[in-house]
């Protein structure tokens, strides 16, 4: 058994464990975002949206579809990793991993893959529901899939860092409530930033979620407020930075070792 085949088995074990964890409780993990999104479509898309008219040349419901799908991906990939890793700290079974000969990058990859898997599953479920309310034609499958996966990776990493620092269940809900949700809602999910005054347009550019939402919208609808190269560059930059920071935390044992 070579070292890398051992690592692969360890990665598969962590990933499978994560997959089983959230699929076992699909009523709490997969279904709620689908129901929430349906409500968004009915209220913002059909009821209010029909009075708003067009945005960037699309009906309002078509315009918000990419943002709503991505919002579900962001929330679910983040919450999967933060709740799973914090729970492993809380119940102390993270020790099973610490005492095992699994390199830290494999541990991180396993948890992130679990978060991406939930993000993708929820994303697919929400996209499938969208088809009942809209008839959008995907402009670029490559862009759509790339942004979809990169966003899930980025927020899985963010969830991991939150879990490392968390000492209580309150700590794992503070970031989603006070940072993630406002940034998502202000990240151009429901509007084009071109509607904002110049000053607020500039402020919005500091919001990383804006780049993801626009890049994803470009993949689905072919329109974006942001140049694609910039959007992709920023997402990749964040992923590299958060990966580096997560590995630093694991290597130092911060939040998990005495």
């Amino acid at each position: 058994m070579t070292r890398y085949s051992r690592y692969l088995t360890a990665f598969q074990t962590i990933f499978t464990k994560e997959l089983l964890r959230f699929t076992r409780i699909w009523l709490q993990t997969i279904l709620p975002p689908v129901i929430t999104t349906v409500l968004y479509y009915i209220i913002f898309g059909n009821l209010i949206g029909s009075r708003i008219g067009e945005m960037d040349g699309f009906s309002y419901i078509d315009f918000i579809v990419p943002g709503l799908i991505l919002m579900a991906v962001i929330t679910n990939s983040y919450s999967n990793v933060v709740s799973s890793f914090f729970s492993s700290k809380f119940q102390r079974h993270v020790e099973e991993l610490i005492i095992s000969p699994v390199p830290n990058w494999v541990i991180l990859a396993g948890y992130v893959a679990g978060g991406v898997a939930r993000g993708v599953m929820v994303g697919i479920a929400v996209t499938s529901v969208s088809l009942f309310f809209t008839d959008i034609q995907v402009q670029s499958y490559g862009w759509t899939l790339t942004v979809f996966i990169l966003t899930a990776i980025l927020f899985s990493l963010a969830g991991f860092i939150n879990a490392v620092y968390a000492n209580s269940f309150d700590d794992i809900s503070i970031v989603p409530t006070f940072i993630l949700t406002p940034l998502t809602y202000l990240g151009g999910v429901f509007y084009s930033i071109s509607m904002l005054p110049e000053f607020w347009q500039q402020v919005s550019l500091a919001n990383p979620i804006l780049y993801m939402v626009n890049a994803f919208r470009y993949g689905l609808l072919g329109v974006s407020d942001i140049p694609m190269g910039v959007a992709l560059g920023i997402v990749v930059l964040f992923i590299v930075a958060l990966t580096g920071f997560s590995l630093y935390l694991l290597n130092r044992g911060i939040g998990i070792k005495n």
Partner: peptide
């Protein structure tokens, strides 16, 4: 699963 997963962390196939 607890025992099998622990083996997996040590690189032992499922």
């Amino acid at each position: 699963e607890i025992v099998v997963n622990q083996a997996g962390f040590y690189g032992i196939p499922r």
